[in-house]
Design a protein around this nucleic acid. Structure first.
Lengths: 353, 353
DNA sequence: TTGTAAGCGTTATCAG
DNA sequence: CTGATAACGCTTACAA
C-alpha cells in the first residue's frame, strides 16, 4: 500500500508537506510543490491508511449502527436512510446485526438480559473501534432500557424509545391512527370496527389512541367491543372479521396490511364485497396493499425518514460533543415522531347517503 | 480508554507481558502473573484498540460487503447469512450500500460506468481500511464485469456471476425451474403456459431453460407461443394470463409470486378457479404466496445460504492467501449454485384423469 | 514555505 | 519467564 512516505520520497519533499497537502491544511504550500505532490498521489494511487489515521486523531469518521434484526422488514429502509445521510457527511457505517429473531424467535421480547448477551460484545466492539456515535435500531417499536449505564458515546434510538434522557426517533403511530380513522369517518362511515395487533404492542396501543381521538372529535361514541385483537395474524384477523361484520360494522380499520388479507378473505367468503359493503383500511403500506382487490388504502411508514433523522440527530450530538471542550453536559435530548403518510386507494369509497 | 500500558503499570509488569497474556501467545507466563493481569483487565475493562492493532498486524479481521442496494428484497437475507458466518469467525463486517435503485431507478442496469462512479470510492474505502476480503452482492442476478482489473483482495460475488476467473455464488434458477415444472407435470398437467419476467433477465432465462428440460424429459413438446413475457409486472401478467387461458393451457408457471397475483386475479375474473380449473405456481416464496387463495406453490430462494456460502468461500480464499507465502496464484475459483426449495401448497392439485 | 521529530497503542524481535 | 525497544503510517507542534 502506498504511504505518505513513499509519496514524499517520490517528490523529494517531506511527509509533513504531503500530509499538509492531503489534508489541505491552512499552511501555505507553494503551488508548484502542491501540483507535483498531487500528481504523485494520483499516479501512485495514494489513499490514507485508516488505522494510522484513526490511531492518531481521536475521531474515526465511523459511526456504529446496531440492528436488532436486519431481516425485519422495517430495518433495511432505516439503515438505508442512515447510510444516505452518512455518505454526505463522509462517514463510514459499521453495521452490527444482533439477529435476535433468528436466534430466539420471539423469546427475547421482554428479556433484556438475553439481549444484553449479544448487545454487550457488539458495544465493546464499537468502543474498541472508537466509533464516534451509535444508532440502535429496534426490530419492532417499543420502550427499551438497554442503555441505562450511559456510555459517553453519542447515542440515538431509532424505531424505539426509552426514558426522557435518551434521544429517540419513532414513527408517529398515534397520528397515523388518527389520520386513518379521520379519513374513514370523513368518507361517511359511522360504525367502525378495529382489528388490532397484540394488545401490549406499542404500535397497536398508539394507533388505537389516535383512532379514539378521531372518533371523539367526530362525536362518535367509542365501542370497545368492536376492537378485536388478532395478534398480527391474518388467520386470526379472518375470524375476528366475521365477528365484526356480524356485529354490524360498516368499516374496518385493520392495523396491518398482512392482517387485512384475512379481512378481505373473510368478507369475500361471507358473500360481501370490500368497498361496496364494507370499507377496509390497512397499515404499513406494504406491496400487498396494491394487490388486494379493490386496492387498499393504507398508511406508509416513514422508515427512510426515521433513518435520516436519526443520523441527523446523531451528528448534531457528535458536533455538540466536539465543541463542548468544557465538558458541559448540555445534551440536546430530543424525542422525534415522524408522521405516517396515508395512501388513499379504493377500499374506502365515499358513502352516498 | 484503557490501554495495555495502564494495565501494565497497574500490575507492575511490562506491556510485553500483558500483550502476551492477552493474545495468549505460546510464551510461558507464570500463573501468578497471568492471574494478576487477567484480573486487572477485567477490573479496568481493557479492550484492545482496533486501530493500533490494525496498524501493527497486517490483518484487520474485517471483511467488506458491498451491496448494490440494501433495499432490494433479496439483499438483507444474504447479508444476514454473511454476518452469521462472520460472527463465528470473529470477523467484523463493514457494509457499504451503493443504493443503486434509489439513486437511479433502473438506469444503472447496463451502465457499468455509472456503477463504477459509486463503486470505486467504496472500493478505495475498503483498501484504505485494509479489509481482508470482499463480498459483492448484486441487486438482481446477472453477469457483471465490474472487477476486471483484479484487486489483490480476495473477492466473492454473491447473487451474480462474472467470467470464469471469479468465484461466485448464485441461486440455481435452472434447477428451480426444472423442479417446479417437473412437479407440475407429475401432478398430471400437460398444457403448460409460462409467464416470464424480462426476456433478457438471467433468472427468467435460466428458469425457462429448466422448464424446457423438464418438458423434454417428460416427452412433451415445448410450445414457445405459450411463453409470455410480463416484465415482472402483475398488471401485465394479468393481461398475459387471459391470452394463455384462451389458448387453452391447463397450468401456468409464473416466474414470480408478485406477478402471480395478476394471474390469480385474471383467472378469477374470467369466472374460473385457480387449482380446480387451472394450476398456478409462483416463484420466490414471498409471504404473499401463503395468502393467495388457494395457497400458492412456490420456490424458496436460498438467500441465507447464498450468504453463508459466500462467506465460507471468502474465508477459504483468505486462508489460502495467508498460507501462500510463495505467492503462488493457486486460486480456488468456484462457481456455486445453490438449489431452490420447492414449497408445495394448494395451487397444483393432482389431476384426476 | 518546508522539515524534524514525537507519539498514538499495539505486536514482534531480541536480549536478559 | 519477563522486559526494552523498534516499527506500523499518520498528524502536529515546533524548528529552520
Amino acid at each position: 500500500m502506498v504511504t505518505l512516505k513513499e509519496i514524499a520520497q517520490h517528490c523529494g519533499v517531506s511527509v509533513t508537506t504531503v500530509s499538509n497537502i492531503v489534508n489541505n491544511s491552512p499552511k501555505k504550500v507553494r503551488d508548484e510543490t502542491r501540483k507535483k505532490v498531487m500528481e504523485a498521489i494520483e499516479e501512485l494511487g495514494y489513499h490514507p491508511n485508516y488505522f494510522a489515521q484513526g490511531l492518531r486523531r481521536q475521531r474515526t469518521q465511523t459511526i456504529g449502527v446496531i440492528t436488532e434484526d436486519l431481516a425485519q422488514f422495517t430495518t433495511p429502509e432505516i439503515v438505508e436512510g442512515i447510510m444516505k445521510y452518512c455518505e454526505e457527511k463522509k462517514y463510514r457505517v459499521l453495521l452490527q446485526n444482533l439477529r435476535l429473531y433468528s436466534r430466539w424467535q420471539d423469546k427475547w421480547y421482554n428479556d433484556e438480559t438475553l439481549i444484553h448477551s449479544v448487545l454487550d460484545p457488539a458495544m465493546k466492539e464499537l468502543v474498541s473501534i472508537k466509533a464516534d456515535g451509535l444508532i440502535y435500531i429496534a426490530g419492532h417499536e417499543r420502550e427499551i432500557h438497554l442503555f441505562e449505564e450511559k456510555t459517553d458515546m453519542p447515542l440515538v434510538l431509532a424505531y424505539c424509545c426509552s426514558d426522557e434522557s435518551m434521544t429517540s426517533v419513532e414513527i408517529d403511530d398515534e397520528e397515523g391512527g388518527y389520520q386513518m380513522v379521520s379519513y374513514i369517518l370523513a368518507q361517511g362511515y359511522r360504525k367502525l370496527g378495529v382489528i388490532s395487533g397484540r394488545a401490549d404492542n406499542i404500535h397497536a396501543k398508539r394507533r388505537l389512541l389516535g383512532c379514539q381521538r378521531a372518533l371523539f372529535e367526530a362525536g362518535i361514541p367509542y365501542n370497545p367491543s368492536w376492537v378485536l385483537d388478532a395478534n398480527w395474524e391474518p388467520e386470526k384477523a379472518y375470524t375476528m372479521t366475521a365477528k365484526l361484520v356480524n356485529a354490524g360494522v360498516d368499516a374496518i380499520f385493520c392495523m396491518s396490511d398482512w392482517m387485512a388479507g384475512g379481512v378481505y378473505n373473510c368478507i369475500h367468503d361471507m358473500g360481501l364485497e370490500v368497498g361496496k359493503d364494507i370499507a377496509v383500511t390497512g397499515f404499513d403500506n406494504e406491496k400487498v396493499a396494491n394487490w388486494y382487490i379493490p386496492k387498499m388504502t393504507s398508511s406508509r411508514l416513514p422508515l427512510l425518514e426515521v433513518g435520516t433523522e436519526s443520523a441527523r440527530l446523531l451528528f448534531e450530538k457528535i458536533e455538540k460533543q466536539d465543541s463542548d471542550d468544557n465538558g458541559a453536559d448540555s445534551d440536546t435530548v430530543k424525542h422525534i415522531k415522524i408522521p405516517c403518510e396515508i395512501k388513499i386507494r379504493e377500499s374506502v369509497p365515499k358513502r352516498n347517503e
